[in-house]
Design a protein around this nucleic acid. Sequence first.
DNA 1: ATTTTATGACACCTTTTGGTTTCATGTCAA
DNA 2: TTGACATGAAACCAAAAGGTGTCATAAAAT
Lengths: 126, 126
Amino acid sequence: MAASPSRHDVFQAIADPTRRQLLRLLGDQEMSVTVISGHFPMSRTAVSKHLRILAEAGLVKGRKVGRETRYRLDPEPLLELKQWLAYYERFWENKMAMLKHYVESGKLDGAEPAASLKAVQPTKKE
Amino acid sequence: MAASPSRHDVFQAIADPTRRQLLRLLGDQEMSVTVISGHFPMSRTAVSKHLRILAEAGLVKGRKVGRETRYRLDPEPLLELKQWLAYYERFWENKMAMLKHYVESGKLDGAEPAASLKAVQPTKKE
DNA sequence: ATTTTATGACACCTTTTGGTTTCATGTCAA
DNA sequence: TTGACATGAAACCAAAAGGTGTCATAAAAT
């Protein structure tokens, strides 16, 4: 499935639900592959391959302890994601500003703001 | 390629580099499919399918204007990503705390902190 | 020394992805 | 009305993803 090192980036790595679960699991504690596999409804081999992909992305680190390999989370690569996401902050700000405007001008009633966000930017006919 | 509505989530949507470029592009301004395609080295149809996936994830909205469809960014679903990411803040804090400890104990010199983060948690032999 | 356990490497299979080209349809312009 | 343009849908394809089972090997336990 995976061949050359670091063929997977953070974005790909977190795209899979199983791998996101793995990250959650490994944040709490270091665990061996077999123990980790116990938490998933798939084969140990499959889990192992997910771990490999996460490792390629730098999101987990494996450490050999006798005959077992223990994996743990390394959150550092998530910073890239955080930075990528930061770019879009300004758009949220815009949305909030527009929402505020609409609310103040009485075009929106007191409906739950979060649900209203999607409708804030009007689909203006041209 | 895609059949049922909303078969793609945000994590999958942003996993592809082309789609991330699309988001960047559509943040600045609303654009028609043909114009968008001009920015990419692939066929218009291919771009159109990426747009579809982004739309399924709610990240872009399409609006028909005469014979063309103009797409624009909708950053709202990125909030889910932001929340997911927020969970890992505490790990960064831990890392920073550990880094601070190491620096103060003189085990790390004044080397660039960002580059040192990966080495902060020592691979302790058991 | 022998056996069991933990893991990674392989070979293999099916589905999904990302891309292509072609075609049908709706809209705009002459 | 006729023709050009914009787009989405469909059929097709190669490669990657996600899974399986088997096997080889190293370490532990008996």
